[in-house]
Design a protein around this nucleic acid. Structure first.
Lengths: 224, 224
DNA sequence: AAAAATGTTATGGTTGACCTTATTATTTCA
DNA sequence: TGAAATAATAAGGTCAACCATAACATTTTT
């Protein structure tokens, strides 16, 4: 069951696929998130395909196989447990934990993962609001829709933030767009135009490519 | 002051040099500890020389430069802080912490190092008995001599264990040769012969290549 | 001082994960 | 349906860190 050894690169690809929704992810999208050229991503996806971790339907997209999904869950588990540790125990700034946890993740043996989970009290969500898979790879996929799809006038509650770049996370942090925040869409400009939001009584502008990774739920008027 | 980026490999070489005493370390010895061929080690030492981290006197040995010493202290700090965390907080078996901490070490940003040190209460020794350099790279070099040099009849106290292989550490752990243990040399066989020791009332045999990395102090009859 | 042991350098090879610059295939849209 | 946009593949290149084999240099031992 324990995979022979996964390179850091393999782990990053699996993680990105899982974060992007794990089915029919276009290679261009994947390449963009990973900061590599589409050609490189294509090459790498071929390799992952040979290892049985993904299935690639040309012109359709990439989908994790069952084996790939398990491996990805494992990577996400490590990633998010470290996020909890860095945030809760080391008091590291929210916007930085993803990147810092990412490095640690690659270096974490199964034994350490499980001991860490126990130390942290087996948390089920990370500080970015994403679920933490259990030791068997099971986890409730995130409910809710992307803030990107919301129309003007809607009020929603942020459930999770799926961004990974420290820069983007810093921007969201500054604007108060964190899990639990209540956000009202004041205006949604056409085309790729930004959303204008009301967060904590302040206005904030948010491009669609950032809004895409903010997962929200319609607020069900849960008491003032 | 922050070095451009150090590869994992560079860090391993610096760490090995520091652990081996950091002056006039032969390439063969270094290669052996790192599990690479002398040819590879030679090549790598040339690269490190070009970066100004080591000085290599052909046929004499390798010595860390000031810059190299600083970098090495930094690596050792991270390594040993993680050892403390894994042992004290995650309750991981003593023999395994070196190897597990080693992976984490390479993935640790300065920010995390300092937060971790604060979380742990700025410890000054690791569970293997080695000193932890402070944030500026200063640390008391270990006093004491190698168990290898002890003669029959001597009784000593183990101060530190500088072995790195999990297998070796497991053996030492089983025999009770841990920091703080009191050890009497019963017999020292000639040539490369083993030492016969008395530890906690039990006899234990120890090859010289293992004994080399057990740092001891003559027991000054401290009580009983 | 010669032989043996050890250390160094030269040469050429491998691997993984990237890159760029074409070229070719497919899909989408006007 | 044909052009434009997007996606895939092919070919060739780079880089770090290893490897093996072989030749050469220096030290140590006899």
């Amino acid at each position: 069951m324990s995979l022979p050894h996964m390179s850091e690169s393999t782990e990053m690809y699996l993680k990105a696929l899982a974060e992007l929704g794990d089915r029919d992810v276009s290679i261009a999208r994947l390449a963009e998130r990973l900061g590599v050229t589409p050609v490189s991503a294509n090459e790498m996806i071929r390799r992952l395909g040979e290892q049985g971790l993904v299935a690639h339907m040309p012109y359709k997209g990439v989908t994790l196989t069952e084996k790939g999904r398990e491996a990805a869950a494992n990577v996400l588990r490590r990633q998010r447990l470290w996020e909890v540790f860095l945030y809760e125990h080391l008091k590291i700034e929210w916007a930085k934990i993803y990147e810092l946890a990412c490095s640690l993740e690659h270096a974490t043996a199964p034994e350490v993962t499980e001991a860490l989970a126990a130390f942290l009290g087996n948390p089920t969500v990370c500080p970015r609001g994403n679920p933490i898979p259990d030791a068997n790879g099971a986890f409730a996929p995130l409910e809710g829709r992307s803030l990107r799809e919301m129309a003007a006038g809607e009020t929603v509650t942020v459930r999770a933030v799926n961004a990974t770049s420290t820069e983007v996370l810093k921007y969201l942090q500054e604007k108060g767009i964190l899990p639990g925040a209540r956000v009202t869409v004041i205006e949604a400009a056409p085309l790729d135009g930004p959303l204008t939001l009301l967060v904590n009584g302040r206005e904030a502008a948010l491009g669609l490519s950032m809004a895409e990774f903010v997962i929200v739920e319609k607020t069900v008027n849960e008491g003032r």
